Simulated assay, not measured.
Amino acid sequence: MTSAPIPVLSPTDARERLLSLKAVLFDLDGVLTPTADVHMSAWARLFSPYLASRGIAEPYTDADYFAYIDGKPRYDGVRSFLASRSISLPEGTPDDPPQLDTVCGLGNRKNSAFTESLEADGVAPYPGSLRFLDAVVDAGLLVAVVSSSRNADPVLRAAGIRDRFDVVVDGLVAAEMGLAGKPSPATYAYGAHLLGLLPEQCVVVEDAHSGVQAGRDGKFGLVLGVDRGAGVAELLESGADIVVDDLDVLLPLSSHSSSTPTPGEPE
């Protein structure tokens, strides 16, 4: 027996639903900025030598990143990947030094590699995402960032867009407020709450399975998937209403938007 096809919105229907809502909640890494690539590199720099040091033959790959780590809080990502290789480590504490072989120590080791790369190379927002952000604001919708990363503030500042968002819910806020990380919808629900809205009044924009699942399970008004490598079919199966390879595919949002359509896209 074949399963029923997953209903997918057309770009036109997605635009119409988006404009009927009141706010857009953006994930950061892989949605607004290409820092997902920096994160992927940092995780590989952590786990490739770590597995080798333990004599584990199955190497770390990008597929592991998308399956076990992408979109999750840092220590949850460590824990999830280690479980995939049947490795159990002490939890440790968030102030563990990076050299320590604990879940938190490995997470802090990864973060050191990420910070070094960010400081050395900087980051710029995706041009299409910036155009989409401009169009959303022009259309009168509120915006916020909801990220699992504890580095959201420095990444937004490095990208030159921190001042675009009055509400940023990141890994530090989640820890302070005791919010479960993605795939729980708790951080997205809190972002909506800070905007004075209900989840069903908001759009979630995500590139990770865990974030798309959070949008679906939180019953948000629209879940936009952005395929930066997780896979179109996989994001749809996780709960995205539509998946695009760049957010400017959805432009223009309205006749009042100052954004211009992507060449080849219908008006």
Rank of each mutant, 00 (worst) to 15 (best):
V137R: 08
V155K: 01
V123M: 14
P125I: 06
S86H: 12
V136Q: 02
V173T: 13
E91R: 15
C104Q: 09
S84T: 10
K22N: 05
V173R: 03
F220A: 06
G215C: 12
Q99Y: 10
D70H: 15
L179F: 14
H256P: 00
T187H: 07
A135C: 14
L25A: 14
G218M: 08
T262N: 07
V244A: 09
R228M: 05
G92I: 09
E176V: 01
G211I: 02
A144P: 15
V38R: 03
G71D: 06
L28M: 14
L141P: 05
V137P: 00
P263W: 04
S257H: 13
I87R: 01
A174P: 04
Y60I: 05
Y126W: 07
V167A: 05
A44Y: 04
L46Y: 11
L46P: 07
S53Y: 02
G231D: 10
L195I: 08
S254Q: 10
D96F: 09
A52G: 03
S238W: 01
T260G: 00
R109V: 01
V205W: 00
G218F: 08
V168E: 07
V223I: 11
V146T: 11
V203G: 02
K22W: 00
V145P: 06
V205P: 12
K22E: 11
V123F: 07
L18F: 12
D246R: 15
R85I: 02
S210V: 06
E58Q: 11
A23D: 13
S3C: 02
G221R: 01
G229F: 08
Y190I: 01
W43L: 06
F132S: 04
G211H: 02
R131W: 02
D27Q: 11
K22F: 04
H256G: 13
A189T: 10
L141F: 02
D246N: 14
D170S: 02
M1H: 08
E206N: 09
A120E: 15
N111E: 14
D207K: 01
S80I: 00
I56W: 07
K219W: 14
V136Y: 02
P261W: 12
G178I: 10
A113P: 03
G55V: 00
R79D: 15
A63D: 15
C104A: 13
